[in-house]
Every structure is written in structure tokens, then in C-alpha cells.
Design a protein around this nucleic acid. Structure first.
Lengths: 113, 113
DNA sequence: CTAAAATACCTAGAACCAAAAAGTAAATAT
DNA sequence: ATATTTACTTTTTGGTTCTAGGTATTTTAG
């Protein structure tokens, strides 16, 4: 079933992950909840989105992982690399471009011919 | 080939088409240029994006088409239906939700624990 | 007059990425 | 004791944009 590609979500998980992880290191399950928190419940990304994204970003060298034992539990903490911050900057700029363009297209009254 | 899905573009062609065509009827090739125009060159959608999108929206009942002879040339003009305007309203609301959520996530300083 | 450019439409193929759904296992709360 | 929460993982799916072609007509330029 998989109601896929909901409008306007392409690139959003990556942007949010890089944003949050450039502030401080976090682990997957924590990110799932933080994203709901910081977006005021407007965006909810499940673990099936978060974990694969983290793996891909790590593989791409944008994130680094380290295992930490917290109490009795072991967690995998992620944080951004230099490459990741560069990628974040590029994403932010893409985002602004699209956002502003859509805003423009809404104002512009398009007269015929 | 086909460097696909540049970030943040999912839903954008559909939104732009419905927006423009709810103002006045236009034909495919015209839409290609109008989109560049109203977005200040920030978004450029090729004919390979526009035409399939138009067909899909027409098939979904969001647009209606009519052939018009303009001078010696025949063009296919599209305009929104009631269903299309409803769909546009839903898309606009989705867009605002995501846009505001991303804005929020940028401000929010996320303190640990 | 002829060649090039612009107009107008169309299609095929693929790659990408978010989403759903399920499952494992340990820790904590009831 | 058992149910819930925590934490991580994988597999499959399918929707949607994109690139890259192609056709044919009309207009502009040399």
C-alpha cells in the first residue's frame, strides 16, 4: 500500500536530519520524536524513513556514527561531518529557491498575451 | 541519465499548473514559459514534465482541455474544473503546512534531554 | 529563397525516494 | 507477569519528476 511521495516531501527528511544533527548528536529513535516536536506535529517521519536516511547519509560521508552505551542500553549517535554541513548549506539554498519561487508564482497575476 | 527528483520538487509541477490554470486557460508550451516567467527563472519545467502532468490532471478530472485554432495553428488549451480547484486548495494547504514546519524546525533550538 | 530557429506537441524509460509494514529484542512500567 | 516503550532493522512498493529523445509546422534571418 505505501501511499508514496506525498506532496512537497522530497528532500525534507534529509534537510531535517542534517539540520538537527548539525546542532547536536542524536540517535535514530530520538530523531523520530524530535522531528515531530520541532515541527509542531506537522511532520511525522517514521523509523522506516529515518533509519534508511541515516544509513544513506553516513554512507555518503555526510554523517558519522558512534555507538554509545547509555545506562544498560546501546545507542547509535549521529552527527554531521564537514561534508554534511556543506550538503546542508546546499540543501538550504535549494529550499529557499523553491520556496521563494512558489511564493512568487502565487502573487504574480498572469495577464494574457 | 535522468538526474531525478531534485530536492523539494515533488508536487510542485502540479501546484504551479493548477495555480496558473485557475487564473486563465493556457496551452502546454505557454505554461512552460510562464512558469519560468512567474518564478523568475528559479523553476524551469521542460515539456517532458508539463505535458504528462497535464494529461494526468485531465485524466483525474482536475483539468479540462479544448482545442483552439489560433491563426493557422491548433493549440490545446487547459483550464481548471471544480474538482481541480478543490485539489488546488488541498495542495495549497499541504504546501503551507510543510513550509511552515520547515521554517519552525529552523528556528527551534533543540536542547538535549 | 533557403536555412535556421522557434513554436507546439508527444512518448519512453528510469531513477529516486518516502512510506508502509513488518519484525527483533531489550528495558521499563503496570 | 505482561504490556508498553525504547531502539534498531529490512523489504517492498509505487508515485512523480527528469532526461532525452522525436515529429511537424511556422516564423525569422541571412
Amino acid at each position: 500500500m505505501a501511499r508514496t511521495n506525498p506532496p512537497f516531501m522530497t528532500g525534507v527528511p534529509e534537510l531535517l536530519l542534517l539540520r538537527l544533527l548539525s546542532q547536536r548528536e542524536m540517535y535514530g529513535y530520538e530523531l523520530v520524536r524530535q522531528i515531530q516536536l520541532v515541527t509542531g506535529e506537522a511532520i511525522k517521519l517514521g523509523e522506516g524513513v529515518i533509519y534508511p536516511s541515516l544509513y544513506a547519509l553516513e554512507k555518503a560521508g555526510a554523517l558519522k556514527a558512534r555507538r554509545r552505551k547509555v545506562g544498560a542500553r546501546e545507542r547509535v549517535y549521529y552527527s554531521t561531518t564537514a561534508k554534511g554541513r556543506k550538503r546542508l548549506a546546499a540543501l538550504e539554498s535549494d529550499w529557499e529557491r523553491i520556496r521563494d519561487a512558489i511564493s512568487l508564482s502565487g502573487e504574480a497575476r498572469v495577464d494574457p498575451a
